[in-house]
Simulated scan of single mutants.
Amino acid sequence: MTQGRADAPVVMIEYSDFQCPYRGMFARDTEPELIHAALLIRQDGRGGRAHHVHSDRPEA
């Protein structure tokens, strides 16, 4: 999953495991604010100064 401009000057790459309880807390409490406010990605996916890339990498 990706969000934001592909050519943005800032790229945040996130590897996570959705089964991890700490990942759940991050997804509820921190990530929405980080993506929306700090990275300045608009709701329509255009504009902003960052590109967010998410990859689900569960621990084996």
Rank of each mutant, 00 (worst) to 15 (best):
M25E: 14
M1Q: 14
P9I: 08
P9L: 06
M25A: 15
H52C: 02
S55M: 06
G48A: 08
A8H: 03
Q43A: 09
H51C: 05
R46D: 06
D7P: 07
S55Y: 09
A38P: 00
H51V: 00
A27S: 10
I13F: 11
G24F: 12
D29N: 13
H54N: 09
Y15N: 12
F18N: 08
L40A: 10
P58T: 04
V11A: 11
G4A: 09
I13N: 14
G4F: 00
T2K: 15
M25I: 14
I41S: 01
H36V: 01
R23L: 01
G47T: 01
F18A: 01
G48S: 02
P58I: 02
P58S: 01
D17M: 14
R28M: 12
H52F: 04
I35K: 04
E14G: 05
Q43P: 15
V10W: 07
V11R: 09
V10K: 11
L39K: 00
E33M: 04
D7E: 14
Q43S: 09
A60F: 03
A38L: 11
R5K: 04
F18L: 12
A38Y: 01
P58N: 01
V53R: 13
V53Q: 10
S55V: 07
S55T: 09
H54K: 13
D44A: 04
L34I: 14
F18Y: 12
Q19C: 12
M12L: 15
A37R: 08
P21F: 06
L40M: 06
F26T: 09
T2F: 04
A6F: 10
T2N: 10
G4N: 05
A27L: 11
R5D: 15
S16G: 15
P21L: 07
P58G: 01
E59G: 08
E59K: 00
M12F: 12
A38Q: 12
T30V: 14
P32G: 07
S16A: 15
H51Y: 03
Q19A: 12
M25Y: 12
I35V: 02
H52P: 02
V11E: 13
A6E: 15
M25L: 13
A60M: 03
R49L: 02
L40C: 04
A37M: 06
E14Y: 01
H36D: 11
R49G: 03
H52D: 06
E59W: 00
G48D: 04
G47D: 03
Q43M: 05
V10L: 09
D29G: 07
R49M: 05
T2Q: 08
A8Q: 06
L39H: 02
D7H: 06
C20D: 15
I41V: 11
E31Q: 14
E31M: 14
R28I: 11
M12I: 14
V53H: 11
T2V: 10
E14H: 07
R57P: 04
R28W: 03
P21Q: 10
